[in-house]
Amino acid sequence: MLRRYSVHLILATLGGLVVYLAYNEYLGLYYLSVLMFMGVNIILSSSLNLVNGYMGEFSCGHAGFMCVGAYVASVLGVWLFARDRVFGAPVLDPEYALYAFPVIILAGGIAAALAGLLVAFPSYKTRGDYLAIITIAANYIIISAIENMSAIGGSRGFMGMKGVINAMEDTIYLPWMPIWVFIFTIFSVWVIRRYVSSTFGKGVNAISQDEVAAEIMSVNTNKIKTITFMLSSGLAGIGGGLFAYILGYVNPGSFNILKSTEIMVMVYLGGMGSLSGSILAAILFTILLELLRPLQIIKWIVIPLVLIILMQFRPEGIMGNRELGQTFPRLKKFYRFK
């Protein structure tokens, strides 16, 4: 009984604690935003792991899909619920912002999933290094397209998302952003976990290990690839939307190849094909980034150095391609996660 609900219990306690601390302002804005970025990073690294780890492809354009989600969610939210220079008065009553917010974030995710087709279709015929180049191209296409849309700010960026958050807080006063980030983080991990542990989703693993055998053994490889790329980029879009609302400002430059690399570092740090590894790595990496903040630009010397050391001494990442329950079988007595 306890084993069955222990994960739910821990998550509820954790979420409740963060919300409580944030509500009473025991937790400073800085720590709160670090926690929120942790959540976003978990979404990003676990969704990229779906492609780079489980499917064995090499996507280096994850930030591009994040960008689509961020822009769609931001523009939609601001257009509907906030007063803005470009769009003028809100289209809907700001009272509804609270209820519409998850829909807006999901809309960003769906738009990003559609953008994921940009990579999914070429993946039918190409793989490996060649597909990696296509993903980089996709990342550039997305950024450049947005840079050239002057209506939403072009390369100067887009803001006004604070208005939507204020509208939510006017309706019911709660720290909404941490709550949504928390919910969407759990949602993402949950969807990925369920997908890859089903027989249907194991087709992803089969493609990674031997695509020819997968196709011959009746796995519809093109369908699985499409679903996997769309799911991965869709979740990245959700992460991007949350990222935009946390910062209150987005510009295309923050979704360039450097951001993609950052997500990739998290995946490789955690271990390919290990969901718990990705989560762990996202948490560690966020903390590491904050600890190194005083170093400013030098941190981009330290972090790649960490990567070099990691690849030298533990190329399989923290968890290898195992899950927490496989590494510590005793833990299984205490939890069940599906």
């Binding site: 997908y195 027989t199 249907f200 989703g201 089969a206 053994m217 796995v219 519809n220 679903i227 799911l231």
Partner: peptide
């Protein structure tokens, strides 16, 4: 996995 063609359910059901 080799029973993939007669799974009878898709992504939505697995989620």
């Amino acid at each position: 996995v080799a029973q993939h063609y007669r799974l009878g359910y898709g992504f939505f059901h697995s989620a």
